[in-house]
Nucleic acid binder design. Structure first.
Lengths: 204, 204, 204, 204
DNA sequence: GATGAATGAGTATTCATTCAT
DNA sequence: CATGAATGAATACTCATTCAT
């Protein structure tokens, strides 16, 4: 009981730090963020940060991985009830865009700091993140495959990645110029694009 | 005349530095790259770097902008002769993917270091780059618009960005797992996807 | 009674800590040793260490002083039964070398960390240790004086220190290159050296 | 020429740093000394220190090794003209004590910080220093051997070390209680001790 | 112009010590 | 008494930038 309470408190502190770190990292990027700043932001001392994360890099990847898991499970839930390809794609577009809008902190971390993933950083966490990403693609791919005709010229993982890439760039646009974008319309538009392409069938 | 020669020589040096910088930045990322390293790589001294670029950040953005211009003009040329929407999209997909593959240094800079674009960095160069990017989108958009039916449910700039986003993510995949990807097939697949979507017309 | 038991228990804990500390300090040196490590080694928590010693420095000096007292009393016993100068010197050489070999932990602390004695460290313990050392020299000196002819050109405290210095350096050599040294032979040799010097009397 | 001048200047700076470092290290010990402090002391900036020495440890060992070489060559010179064992020992005692008195900074470093030699510190410099010390002992040993009767019960390297150890401890005493010691007398006394021991020959 | 020696601000990380439980 | 979570001062080292030569 006492143990449980202790552990709960510890987990609580961990979360407080993660939350503050997410914001600061998103605002300033990895290199520009100082542990000092994160400490200030979450109200704990610098030393305490190291009680929960063994390095700045560990903290950084922990933030991303934690969120990435939430992202994947959100998507998973969103597409779980889809009955056909229209619904799957619609759900994907909708859920991804929505998640990024609601967690633009995470988006900035994940997209804008891919550098950390591509360059250096041994720590083993890089690998953990890459795995998470692959699992994410795989999950999406499988869901699409179920509803895609076997003779489709589009491979499901190509489709999965293309959708994700499109959402990424639109989210970026939305972050930089929010006033030029109506999210609801945009989501419909993108969904249509991936469903039917630009050439109306009647033309054929 | 002597002046011309002088200026030519100076421009030559500038290019040498840019080229070295591109490689090092791509290899190591912005923060991990030192001016010392760039100096070594191009054979000039650290001090000389500052005769051509007023700061590390200036050098960094110069590299990107220079390449971004080449990118835009390459695309422009590629789509200039397209006669219809199929050809425009085909050319876009082909040219972008090709450019990234041939200039993956640039791709890593541009995509993996978007952080520099989003975060901080006053230097005014950030704005310059954003402008370039907007111009790029505009150019692509206009070209698409010319060949898109007026009543198309897909707005040309949505299309332009979606294609670009898709290419981005496939390039990234290619960089991380080159063996899983056949560029030629992939280009065709993506083109088909944006032209006709995933739902075959015959179904209708 | 209960009090006695309590105090005994407390003393017991103190000894456990001292023993662990001696080993860790000897192994790692003062600065490289952490209270955490000592705590681990003795099975008590960091906080408990501070119930017995008011600082890391206090712990350090306590270890040394405790051992230094044992050292002095060992020597005292060894020379107490000596009947003449030969026996005193023989006993000194033998006992010192033996003690260092058996307590090389202590030797490393005492000799290799003389820095702590010479530099800084207010704590008052420095003085305590210096006093102990002076008492040690005094004791040895007096014992030598008793058996030294009054007209000896060698002052007993010069002799005492010289022997101690010689033993020190030989112990150090033994620690660094144990294979090059035969302790028994060496002890005899040193004893001879201090008794008769290098110039055989017959020569005279 | 210009090159020579540059190199001379560089060497000069290096020496300035070494000198300051020697004093600070001797005063405060290795761990307690900060690069900041050394920088202040020599008037150069912290960064400059790293232009000449790749780490604090490198600086530390450089100081010691540099001086150790001077020590060895001083001794070598001192005993080079000795004609017999009396003169060799006399010269050794005299030169060593003299050197330590004149370079007590070095003595404090070398003796009081043997910890650095015994504990940790990879850097390869540790080995360099140990080598130097062995060479020193060897040199002294050989010189003694030349003048020692073949049948002497005292091995020359035992003698060399014993003398060195004795001098060490007397120097330490002199540092801590200078007023109790008359160096000139002491040197004679020690020389006598090692030559003839404590037992007058006439006794025999 | 070209150089590279000199600078010093900036930061992750450690660890002795305290104190609420 | 015993604990160990929390603290925050302290420090080696890097690197963009400058400027005398």
């Amino acid at each position: 009981m006492t143990m449980d309470r202790k552990e709960l408190r510890k987990e609580q502190h961990r979360l407080e730090i993660l939350e503050a770190a997410e914001q600061v990292f998103a605002r300033q990027g990895f290199h520009t963020t100082t542990m000092e700043k994160v400490a200030e932001e979450c109200g704990w001392s610098k030393g305490t940060l190291y009680l929960h994360f063994k390095s700045k890099e560990d903290l950084f990847f922990s933030v991303i991985i934690e969120k990435a898991e939430k992202f994947t499970s959100t998507l998973e839930k969103a597409i779980s009830t889809a009955q056909n390809i229209e619904e799957v794609i619609g759900a994907l577009v909708n859920a991804q865009f929505q998640f990024f809008i609601e967690n633009n902190d995470f988006f900035q971390l994940a997209v804008a700091e891919q550098g950390k993933v591509m360059h250096g950083s041994d720590s083993g966490m890089r690998e953990g993140l890459l795995e998470k990403q692959q699992h994410h693609v795989l999950m999406t791919t499988q869901s699409l495959q179920k509803h895609l005709p076997d003779d489709s010229p589009i491979k499901p993982d190509t489709l999965a990645r293309s959708i994700m890439g499109a959402i990424n760039i639109h989210t970026l646009t939305w972050l930089l110029q929010p006033e030029t974008i109506n999210p609801e319309e945009l989501k419909l538009e993108i969904t249509q694009l991936f469903l039917h392409g630009v050439i109306p069938c009647t033309k054929a």
